[in-house]
Design a protein around this nucleic acid. Structure first.
Lengths: 339, 339
DNA sequence: TAAGGTAGAGTTACCGATTACCAGAATGCT
DNA sequence: AGCATTCTGGTAATCGGTAACTCTACCTTA
């Protein structure tokens, strides 16, 4: 049914090895033989069996990617950038979604390990580093994306979350906000970093956050993040004194906040200014265009891919690299209280 | 380095075949032996080599997915739904993005064919059916998603685009619009179907579209779709008579339209009502919440996955199935001119 | 002219599993 | 007791390639 090297070799009266050498541009073959083989390959529409090749070379030319949620534009953007870089190098991307569930993530990781991907890229929803030890046992190079872990010396590419928190908070202060609340995410590095940047900036300006003004929402997919923000905002709005600015750890949350604020009959940014984080693709088109922190997700994806490629090329283990991308503030209407 | 069946067999004094049979729950093995093998597998953290297995069984337990754009929430949603179904059956998803480029799509298809995926799911950006013939030559089951081709008897799962066009247009008429424009997409089945539904509905109401009121925008990714809509809307706004309603073939385009309308100082929906298509995740949060057509992307993904699974199970070729999902209208502020 | 090189192609072993077929022991049945 | 059957497990071939050698001519070169 399917064409094998053997068929081509037989047709041409050469050995299988000769065909193999032609396929891999091995030097040992005369121009003439090479042409004959190439010609026959085209005629028969020959495709090498990657499974057979992988079996003997130990390389699958396959990369595993695990993200918490494909619907989140940040991860979609990262995935897109990654896949572009890998495609050019002949690698295919196997995609797994953990749905923000650590258990599911472990299962998916297990599958990818069993598939013997050549490298792994993970935006993890884990709480512990146990999984990563397992990857290290298998000697598969891996790169953490977006979320990192203290005490784990691993390759990492992501944004400087602390700087993001500082940027957002300082901006709100500068816009005249005096009671700045924060809706923070679950206990992963991104949320922790952003919260820390927020906290430090406030105290550096001698305006520590009021009690109850930091609300935590769980780890959600995109849709539910919006709901989480909505609920959290309702709580904030009911407070006395009411916050006059909110920094949300991501954009979906900020969207939920905006919905709650508008529903309560308050104005954005006059009554409450809102800043998100992520610069999600539609930020500009929202009911009130959202001021947010851009994470440069494309660059994150590209650099993570490049890093993974270099890791695979390296014959000796390299010391883990941490690539930190500086976030930028994108000011839109949701926080603009001063001309 | 890595553990093989051979190692387990040696340790236990049994043959490799015995180990293999245990792994696959083959009946021929005593409970006791099975337990011993299982135990040793756990101890050594054995993982079967899928490449070796694929080589002999001819099944890679891998599914190829090609989408035009991962950033488009519709495809992200479909991909998510697909991957959920396949994961439960032990299949992994190899993801390719064609970036709406037919040439790139062909290359990616070629890669997936070479990888010998067990099935292919494609939301195609092709103009011709040539590629699909190639898939058929390889005898790989494939399912078209979202976009279909006339003259190609292939498995298909998608929304009834004509119905979507009817739904949107009839709604605008009902809301009192009398000069309804349409911003249509490139020459793929979705855009064609929606445009046809639009055209027919108008003529059934004896109000054919005015000249110049159907504008075509190219095949764009998500971001640029917004720009395309913006540009097209500027043209429409400048017309005399000006349209009082616009049906856009997708949501990003509609967002662009809304931006242009608002920038021109006009009101939505009073001056111009806008209806999109796709019910993109943020539709509800836009500057003016967008009336749109829901395509039930999750259901599309799930049904496409189920269909692919049944295709793989079938020992004899099945006659192509076409699953058409009925769209629903989601009314929001952008078109609501009547209480 | 003999030793050594080199280009071109072939031999052999092996990657890690699965499959079809076979063999020996224990059990059942007449 | 004798033979068939069931239960367990093993043998050998195979999947489609690749790696590392080996082998032949044919050239050089001293």
């Amino acid at each position: 049914m399917t064409v094998r090297m053997k068929d081509i070799a037989r047709d041409l009266g050469v050995s299988v090895v000769t065909v193999s050498k032609v396929l891999r541009n091995h030097g040992d073959i005369s121009k003439e033989t090479r042409q004959r083989v190439l010609k026959r390959m085209k005629e028969l529409n020959y495709r090498p069996n990657l499974a057979a090749r992988a079996l003997i070379t130990g390389k699958s030319y396959t990369i595993g990617l695990i993200v918490p949620d494909l619907l989140h534009p940040f991860f979609a953007q990262v995935a897109k950038a990654l896949s572009g870089v890998f495609r050019k190098q002949g690698y295919s991307l196997i995609l797994s979604s953990s749905e923000e569930d650590p258990e599911l993530e472990k299962e998916e990781l297990d599958v990818l390990l069993t598939r013997r991907v050549d490298a792994l890229l993970i935006a993890s929803a884990q709480w512990t580093v146990e999984s990563f030890r397992q990857i290290e046992d298998q000697q598969i190079p891996y790169v953490l994306i977006d979320r990192r872990f203290v005490g784990l010396a691993a390759n990492f590419v992501g944004v400087d979350d602390d700087a993001a928190g500082v940027l957002a908070t300082a901006h709100l202060i500068e816009q005249g906000c005096r009671r700045i609340a924060h809706i923070r995410g679950p206990e992963v590095s991104t949320a922790i970093g952003r919260a820390e940047g927020y906290r430090r900036t406030l105290s550096e300006h001698a305006m520590p956050s009021l009690s109850g003004h930091v609300i935590s929402v769980g780890a959600f997919g995109d849709e539910r993040g919006e709901v989480g923000g909505y609920e959290a905002a309702k709580t904030l709005i009911a407070m006395d004194p009411r916050p006059d600015g909110v920094f949300c750890y991501n954009d979906p949350t900020a969207m939920g906040v905006m919905r709650a604020v508008l529903e309560a009959g308050l104005r954005i940014p006059e009554d409450i200014a809102v800043v998100g984080c992520g610069n999600v693709i539609y930020s500009d088109l929202l009911r009130v265009p959202l001021t947010t922190i851009d994470q440069n997700s494309q660059s994150i994806g590209e650099q993570a891919a490049e890093l993974a490629l270099s890791l695979m090329d390296a014959k000796v283990p390299i010391r883990p690299v941490s690539i930190c991308i500086e976030p930028t503030l994108v000011v839109r209407a949701s926080s603009l209280r001063r001309a």
